[in-house]
């Protein structure tokens, strides 16, 4: 018999470490950046989780509510009960993806964009973000000076001592295939590759169902504003 969502959630290392019991003092929400700009309240989130109710948890995992947090952990510093709403969010997001429930919310679907950008960069290059992918098209806020840096990359990076795409120690070096292979193996052995596959697979299900090709789906989840 498969485990309930509640059981799985409460077995997660982040819930084990991050959930004691909430007294609703509101210190977390008062400093939470997400609470300031979204209709979101980390204290309410913790209260919902504490109900230990299967239906409530399932609804949470399918909703936008778990995707507002910026994981800054400002909520953790002062909680008088030693809770960490941020850690609980990590557990919820993980479970939501593992169970394929993230596709039921607009913000959850954005994980496909994260997978393709950051996820691809990690295994493909060994960096979470890499210079070549930091285009003005994807990141217009980087500004005209960044554009100029990109245009003159070899000169400028050389001047500051970078090892751009070189196979040696230094910033922006090309990470060797053997090291990338070890990283991939780690992902395979620990279930990291499996998580990637689930996000990919579930997202493809949506693409198929909604008749979207990969590029337009990516652009939709990457750029379309969500309320």
């Amino acid at each position: 018999m498969s485990k309930s969502l509640v059981d799985e959630l409460f077995e997660d290392v982040h819930v084990r470490h991050g959930l004691e019991a909430c007294i609703n003092c509101g210190m977390c929400t008062s400093v939470c950046p997400a609470a300031l700009v979204y209709d979101y309240d980390p204290r309410v989130l913790v209260n919902l989780v504490e109900k230990r109710d299967e239906q409530t948890i399932e609804e949470l995992l399918k909703s936008d509510y778990i995707w507002y947090c910026g994981e800054c952990m400002s909520c953790t510093t002062r909680c008088p009960r030693n809770n960490s709403p941020g850690e609980i969010v990590i557990a919820l997001r993980h479970l939501s993806q593992r169970k394929g429930l993230f596709i039921h919310s607009a913000r959850g679907r954005q994980q496909y964009a994260v997978l393709k950008t950051v996820g691809g960069s990690i295994l493909g290059k060994g960096y979470c973000v890499y210079f070549d992918d930091l285009t003005l098209e994807r990141f217009p806020e980087q500004g005209p000076t960044w554009d100029w840096v990109r245009k003159n990359r070899h000169q400028i990076l050389n001047k500051v001592g970078a090892a751009y795409k070189e196979v040696k120690a230094g910033p922006m070096r090309k990470i060797a295939e053997s090291d990338l292979a070890e990283l991939k193996k780690i992902f395979d052995v620990t279930g990291g590759s499996e998580l990637y596959e689930i996000i990919e697979e579930k997202s493809r299900e949506v693409m198929k169902k909604e008749g979207k090709d990969e590029e337009s789906y990516f652009n939709e989840v990457y750029e379309s504003p969500v309320k």
Binding site: V13, H94, Q97, V114, G119, G191, G192, L195, Y196
Partner: peptide, 11 residues
């Protein structure tokens, strides 16, 4: 990757 939730703790 971890804080964008595509990489989990064990990895």
């Amino acid at each position: 990757g971890y804080h964008t939730d595509i990489v989990h703790f064990e990895t």
